[in-house]
Design a protein around this nucleic acid. Structure first.
Lengths: 336, 336
DNA sequence: TTTATTTACGAAACCGTTTTCGTCTTTTCC
DNA sequence: GGAAAAGACGAAAACGGTTTCGTAAATAAA
């Protein structure tokens, strides 16, 4: 079956193309009667406007790009739900692009977005991203960019973040208050904003509780689960001083930590206490249940989407910054 | 900064628009020297072709639609990874649309896709979907549709599925072999293909092991976690005969089941054994570790994407069907 | 009644690429 | 040396909407 165009409707009703278009867009120029006829025919012929024609003419796509490292991660998938809930209500489409934590992919995607494919971009940078040239290039083409969660300080753009510093602090303080003296911080990137801020919070908490900070207690993890497992295991086998607390800065390290403890016959929480940044619903049924810093993923998604819409409407939001706090939920893995 | 078009390049080089376009597309009509000049200028001016103009002219969008119930689910997020890996390699974009398990949303999305926005659609139907009119309407507009995982038998279209019947059978047989006599099946929808096939497998396994099938042992869950918790709890409190095995047909029921058992002080696996259809990496660190039917989510995504590409190229794949088997991974929750 | 205004519609340009036909040189071949 | 062929490019028509600017008729104001 051929796709029905505005021209077909025009022919059928003996009206001009412009009249049809105006009628469909409910223009005041068109009489109520004509509008009815047009709408009726459009419905029976199952007319659907070609979005590419509109976008080409109107210079807007009613589509936004969402650039995230990964979708198989509860934080990002929940954030996407939040984004989608806002965008759907406003009639926007969401184009999700994955960087797989690789800078090159991120660069390619943003470059592509310079074409006018999207009206705006929500971005959570990859763990490899150090420079912001590609982001500035995009913004220079008048495509508004809003960071969410993982920002690049170097770039001036709107941002929706959570209180990473305070959360890192809270996680660490919580472990100290529960008797830990040798706390290890598991990072995911040397450059990533969130990882660094959480670590700063960790350091500050140690200092405030008069505990020494040891470089060796900050363990750099990678994107490779098997490698992380080895790293964590080695760390846990260290003697004098033996680690008695772990702050894991990203969700995917949960399995690694529990697995390693299990394999080394270390008991949680008696031998080692654990707090993890995680949004996994399943945290409650781990054994022991996992103490988490739970991020407001859905809300962050909503907030970022709303802010981006403002930017698309022409408001300057470049210096907007919103911090939505995470919450520490104490469970079995950290209490004595 | 203004967006640089083909026309701008033409003016700059004193060439016609058509020459530029041909040069960029490496046409044989254009001399090597001219091509070089065009490419060079395009690079320095940072030219990016307007995708909407191309799509409008060429009647293809190099975009596919992926319609899934939910993204915060490890099966779908892994499947999306698989889809994306294929599509990225072929230069296609992926537009992800969520139905949130609601038929009305699914209908709206597919209706929108009739506009030519996408070159093809990968679809996993919602739990509410009973009729396939909306899918046939889309196919009638020459938009190829490939089902993955959740199919609608009523509609003739290509499909990538897993061996749901055999998996339901395997899960049940596994429980029987480990001593269960009163096995409950937790479904998610009365109409959903996967849920029904898995249940048929469950019934067959009971029959083959000379165990009675009781209607009361098929429990219909919903999309509401709190409600499911109540349902499961009630079921577990039943006396004479007390359930001693559970087959949970979808991942999200894992938390519900463990939680309910925990709250009722029922021990897994001694009081009740559990098998769950799940792709959660975290299954290994649950306590006890969870026996799963693990679906080949990534592979199914890849296969579906490849098949859709074939269909887009014009091959008739309407009757193609591929079954990629799931695997039963026995762990602590089901062994004696 | 004449003029001004409103109402309802149409013609045509435009958005940026692609592609089909020319057309003008230059080369090749007999 | 003349005809045929190849090479290199340009003009213009699409693709399907949107929007600006006319304009004819109907109504209101003077």
């Amino acid at each position: 079956m051929k796709h029905v165009t505005i021209r077909a409707l025009a022919r059928e009703l003996n009206l001009s193309v412009s009249t049809i278009s105006k009628a469909l867009r409910d223009s005041y120029e068109i009489s109520a009667e004509t509008k009815q006829r047009v709408l009726a025919l459009a419905a029976t012929l199952n007319y659907t406007p070609n979005p590419y024609a509109s976008s080409l003419r109107g210079k807007k796509s009613r589509t936004i790009g969402v650039v995230v490292p990964e979708v198989a991660d509860s934080f990002f998938s929940l954030a996407i739900n939040g984004i989608e809930s806002v965008m759907k209500a406003m009639g926007y489409h969401v184009l999700i692009c994955l960087t797989h934590e690789q800078f090159d992919n991120e660069k390619l995607i943003l470059k592509e977005f310079q074409s006018g494919r999207v009206d705006g971009v929500l971005l959570s940078v990859s763990r490899e991203t150090l420079s912001g040239e590609h982001i500035r290039d995009l913004a220079a083409q008048d495509v508004p960019v809003v960071f969410f969660d993982r920002v690049l300080d170097e770039v001036q753009a709107a941002r929706i973040v959570t209180n990473d510093f305070e959360s890192g602090y809270a996680a660490t303080a919580h472990l100290v208050e529960n008797g830990c003296r040798e706390i290890v911080y598991l990072g995911i990137s040397e450059s990533l904003s969130i990882s660094n801020r959480r670590m700063e919070g960790y350091r500050q908490a140690l200092a405030d509780h008069r505990l020494p900070f040891r470089t060796g207690n900050v363990v750099a993890c990678t994107n490779d689960a098997a490698e992380n497992y080895k790293t964590v295991k080695k760390m846990l086998q260290r003697k004098a001083p033996r680690p008695d607390g772990i702050v894991a800065s990203v969700e995917k390290l949960t399995t690694t930590v529990y697995q390693a403890c299990n394999d080394l016959r270390l008991r949680i929480p008696s031998d080692v206490k654990v707090v993890c940044f995680s949004n996994l619903e399943i945290a409650t049924i781990l054994h022991p249940s996992l103490t988490t810093i739970t991020q407001p993923a859905f809300e962050m998604g909503r907030a970022a989407a709303s802010l981006l819409l403002k930017a698309i409407k022409g408001n300057n939001v470049m210096s907007a910054e919103m911090v939505i706090p995470s919450v520490l939920i104490p469970r079995g893995s950290s209490t004595r």
